[in-house]
């Protein structure tokens, strides 16, 4: 899923301080799972903001809502009737959701309430980690199901580098060496022949380097 973390409240206060009526819009998708932008986080943020603006004697109404998904127009449509009641929206969705909201409600200032970080997994409650960089050309078949692009700090395709030590990356003892993991897993799977062959330079056209990406599938279009 897409992982995000809440923006510091000071930053959000700064975004909305010049308005009088603001809607905090959560998203029930990924950001709910990583506890950054779901209903609960909307409530807490809205309450804290109300406390702040009340204390400052500033006229400010803060309302709360959450949409099933903000990356989907059908759900964004649910705001159509009430969007004009607000001066601005703080969206707690990922960057995609914030932008889609802005695209849909062009005249309304939309501010991000979270920092979108990566595509990852919940390793344990409160610990989320990156697993995928969406390069658009999955190579996991030959790397033991572990992605060197997201797990190696140098995104090497022929690692590990000389900085690998006791399974850890040279950048930090808290970071696993992606290639160490790959090697161990290939060994367990009896697939070390994948490791033996040099990997050629990758075609990054399908990654963000090729420009903004789009998938168009005629088979599922209406």
């Amino acid at each position: 899923m897409i992982m995000a973390r809440p923006k510091p409240i000071e930053e959000i206060i700064d975004e909305i301080k010049d308005f009088n009526k603001v809607l905090i819009a959560g998203c029930d998708g990924c950001v709910t799972v990583c506890e950054a932008g779901g209903v609960k986080e909307v409530q807490v943020l809205a309450s804290a903001l109300r406390l702040y603006f009340t204390k400052e004697n500033k006229r400010m109404e803060i309302d709360e809502t959450s949409l099933t998904r903000q990356c989907d127009k059908d759900y964004l449509h649910e705001l159509l009737d009430k969007i004009d009641d607000y001066d601005a929206i703080v969206s707690l969705a990922c960057g995609a959701g914030v932008q889609f909201m802005a695209e849909m409600y062009r005249k309304k200032p939309i501010f991000p309430g979270v920092d979108t970080c990566f595509i990852g997994v919940t390793e344990e409650r409160g610990v989320w980690a990156e697993r995928c960089q969406a390069c658009g050309q999955c190579i996991l078949a030959s790397t033991g199901g572990i992605c060197p692009i997201s797990r190696c700090s140098k995104r090497m395709l022929n690692g590990p580098c000389g900085g690998s030590e006791k399974g850890k990356c040279e950048i930090s003892p808290d970071t696993d060496c992606g290639w160490h993991l790959i090697y161990e897993r290939l060994k367990e799977l009896g697939q070390l022949d994948f490791f033996a062959e040099p990997t050629d330079p990758k075609d990054w056209v399908s990654s963000r380097d090729g420009g903004p990406r789009k998938i168009v599938r005629e088979d599922v279009r209406l």
């Binding site: 990054w204 990654s207 380097d209 090729g210 420009g211």
Partner: peptide, 13 residues
């Protein structure tokens, strides 16, 4: 220019 125009469109920019 974006590498799209050149002889190595596969490159990371």
């Amino acid at each position: 220019d974006h590498q799209h125009f050149g002889d190595h469109p596969q490159a990371i920019n």
